[in-house]
């Protein structure tokens, strides 16, 4: 059985003259829920794109499920369900929920080779997982932000991937949708999948994440949640005071709040 889902070895990524990631090394284990935490511009999105081969490192090596991304890009992409940031999509494009979810099948299968009935079966199953079966023919632009995010997760799930990569899935969504998403991701991990998610707000997943990476161009610290999540590490990440508090049996992090 594969031990690591993603391995970075001394990876540096740059956009023209701007360094986005500097000498990054880590190994994300399979079948775990990993959260990447960092301030804006910390390189979280770049890191996720590097895993997918959308961005090529200047130096270093990236492996996904033991295979070099540089040489096995198309093979690796079939194993990953990707949920990009919602705001990169143009909502004026006339597509329905069914259209968006079936897009997830394009890479894995040639759509011309599978029957419409088979596509519909897979799409309906994925939508059922995220609790939106009744919105199959609804225009994507008519959905709320939370529903749109759930549809994009259904699109990632439709090809039965081994790993899900999510870029800021909680930004601009309601609490109800956020809870549904967390439940879906947890179930995916319980069934043997791997989840890597970037977020700037750790509180919603504090109870569910197995591993945490604190990133700010370089890895500040990475490891099991219990070892990483402490006030000292978070203060180093944000350059601000942080405090943990417990409320109704749940832990919360407050960053930069002197009065907390």
């Amino acid at each position: 059985m594969m031990k690591y889902a993603v391995e970075f070895d001394k990876v540096t990524v740059a956009y023209e003259d701007r360094i986005a990631l500097l000498d990054v090394s880590f190994k994300i284990p399979c079948n775990k829920f990993t959260c990447i935490l960092g301030p804006n511009g910390a390189g979280k999105t770049t890191l996720l794109k590097t895993v997918l081969g959308l961005v090529e490192p200047v130096t270093g090596s990236v492996k996904v499920f033991g295979k070099e991304v540089a040489t096995h890009k198309s093979e690796i992409r079939k194993l990953i369900g990707y949920v990009p940031q919602k705001d990169v999509m143009d909502l004026s494009i006339p597509v329905t929920v069914k259209d968006v979810v079936s897009m997830g099948l394009y890479g894995r299968y040639s759509l011309m080779l599978i029957s419409r009935r088979k596509i519909m079966e897979k799409v309906s199953k994925a939508l059922k997982i995220v609790g939106l079966s009744n919105l199959l023919e609804t225009p994507f632009s008519h959905l709320s932000g939370g529903q749109q995010q759930r549809v994009l997760i259904a699109r990632a799930l439709v090809k039965s991937p081994r790993m899900l990569i999510l870029d800021e899935p909680f930004s601009g969504i309601d609490v109800a949708s956020r809870d549904v998403i967390i439940k879906v991701l947890k179930e995916f991990v319980d069934k043997g999948g791997t989840v890597i998610m970037s977020t700037h707000d750790i509180n919603p997943v504090l109870d569910y994440a197995d591993y945490i990476m604190l990133l700010n161009k370089s890895v500040i610290t990475f490891g099991p949640k219990e070892e990483v999540m402490n006030e000292e590490s978070l203060s180093r990440l944000y350059g601000l005071k942080t405090r943990f508090i417990s409320l109704n049996g749940r832990k919360y992090v407050f960053i930069g709040d002197e009065s907390a």
Binding site: L52, L54, R77, P84, M89, I93, V95, M103, G107
Partner: peptide
């Protein structure tokens, strides 16, 4: 006609399409 679905995908979400292997 042959590549309508693919063109639809790159029109809606170019980055997602590339990440899917298109």
């Amino acid at each position: 006609g042959l590549f309508f679905d693919a063109f639809k995908f790159i029109t809606f979400d170019p980055e997602g399409a590339e990440a899917c292997g298109l």
